[in-house]
């Protein structure tokens, strides 16, 4: 997903440095992995269950 690309494009990943506080960067108890998973779910569900798409499928 594009969200993942975006995070990879960030050259520095300062939250990985020793002494960094993850929660300064990630809210809701996310870390890098769980946040990317959340983004991937956002990407996927927005694409697969987009209301217009669902309606179109229902009517066909």
């Amino acid at each position: 997903p594009l969200t993942q690309l975006t995070l990879n494009e960030l050259k520095d990943k300062p939250w990985r440095l020793p002494g960094a506080d993850l929660s300064d960067y990630f809210n809701y108890g996310f870390d890098e992995i769980s946040w990317l998973a959340y983004c991937a779910k956002q990407d996927k569900l927005h694409a697969d269950f987009n209301p217009a798409k669902v309606i179109t499928e229902l009517l066909n």
Binding site: L7, D21, F26, N27, Y28, G29, F30, Y38
Partner: peptide, 23 residues
């Protein structure tokens, strides 16, 4: 970014408030 996306690349250097929440 921090509130809605759950992530802000600026971390502790962000000029805006990072309000920790549970979802």
């Amino acid at each position: 970014n921090y509130t809605n996306l759950g992530f802000c690349p600026d971390g502790p250097n962000c000029q805006r408030r990072h309000i920790r929440k549970a979802m």
